[in-house]
């Protein structure tokens, strides 16, 4: 579809009310992109919108609130994104940045019965991406970016208890979800290439960044450790710049590299590139998100009142 909006990049950033997401929203808005940011609370969304507009008064930015720990909220967000884009005259989504992430000191289960970090850090990006693939397919250069982390190195998926229900450990759970991000991006690229799509997916390693992620749902000791550790990190603008580079620059698309840090490709962990692991995780995630019409879910609907 040819219209005046055709040259403007449309970009969705989840978790764009603080940290890397907010910094990236500012940079992308300043570069003239049409940005939809998401956040958990209306209030924080309003605040972030003002923040972006304070550095970029004519920013083309909208915020949508959604709690990404709930699959039905992720689906609702996807449909809100479709509506918002359509309302503003766009028929395509150019870039989806799955940036929202969380940490939890305790095993918390979501409304859908999943472990909180697993749901927010892995399942939400998985489902949101799948929901928005048709819109991304209409872009000339559809791009998916997931904020992963160097913590994906030196870990593996615990298949017998993937959500660590029985032996929960905050850092282990976090590392696993960041590994899942790389596996997801790798498998997504494989599937997209196989279907002849020109959408490309990247995992971004932000490095150690001074954000408040370590204060989300953690207890005193973890907060204290993060308080000191994060001070040694870079400011959120540094990874946000890499994010904007992956989103806007045609260069990374031609390299075939999936894992990026500081605007340069980097080797992800060997485990994250195992095709069988990535495929198994993909299929499990599909079942968890109810993407495949599961037989028993149909039966369950009949027996339910």
């Amino acid at each position: 579809m040819e219209n005046s909006n055709d040259t403007i990049k449309t970009i969705v950033i989840t978790g764009a009310t603080s940290g890397i997401g907010l910094a990236a929203a500012k940079e992308l808005a300043m570069k003239g992109a049409y940005v939809i940011g998401t956040g958990r609370s209306e209030e924080r969304c309003r605040y972030a919108e003002q923040e972006v507009k304070s550095v970029c008064p004519d920013a083309n930015i909208t915020y949508l609130a959604a709690d990404l720990s709930s699959l039905s909220e992720v689906r609702r967000l996807a449909s809100d994104i479709r509506e918002t884009l359509a309302k503003d005259g766009f028929s395509q989504l150019d870039v989806l940045i799955n940036n929202a992430g969380t940490v939890s000191s305790w095993y918390i289960s979501t409304v859908d019965g999943f472990e909180l970090q697993f749901a927010v850090n892995h399942l939400a990006p998985f489902l949101l991406t799948n929901e928005l693939l048709p819109l991304l397919g209409r872009s000339r250069a559809g791009t998916v970016i997931c904020t992963s982390s160097g913590s994906h190195y030196r870990t593996r998926l615990r298949w017998n208890d993937i959500m660590l229900r029985k032996h929960y450990n905050t850092l282990l759970a976090y590392k696993q979800t960041k590994l899942a991000n790389v596996l997801f991006v790798t498998e997504l690229n494989r599937r997209l290439a196989a279907s002849g799509s020109n959408i490309k997916a990247f995992a971004l390693d932000p490095g150690l960044v001074d954000t408040d992620i370590g204060f989300k749902g953690t207890s005193g000791i973890a907060k204290l450790v993060w308080k000191f550790r994060s001070k040694g990190g870079t400011s959120p603008e540094v990874p946000a710049h890499s994010m904007a580079y992956l989103a806007l620059d045609p260069e990374p698309r031609s390299t075939g590299k999936v894992y990026w840090k500081d605007c340069r490709p980097k080797e992800p962990s060997r485990y994250s590139q195992k095709p069988d692991v990535a495929k198994k995780l993909w299929e499990l995630s599909e079942r968890m998100c109810g993407i495949i019409g599961h037989k028993s879910s149909q039966e369950q609907k009949q027996t339910a009142v």
Binding site: L71, V111, D112, G113, C289, G290, H294, S296, S297
Partner: peptide, 9 residues
Amino acid sequence: KLSESLANT
């Protein structure tokens, strides 16, 4: 919500 998700998973 919970029932659907458990049946699927």
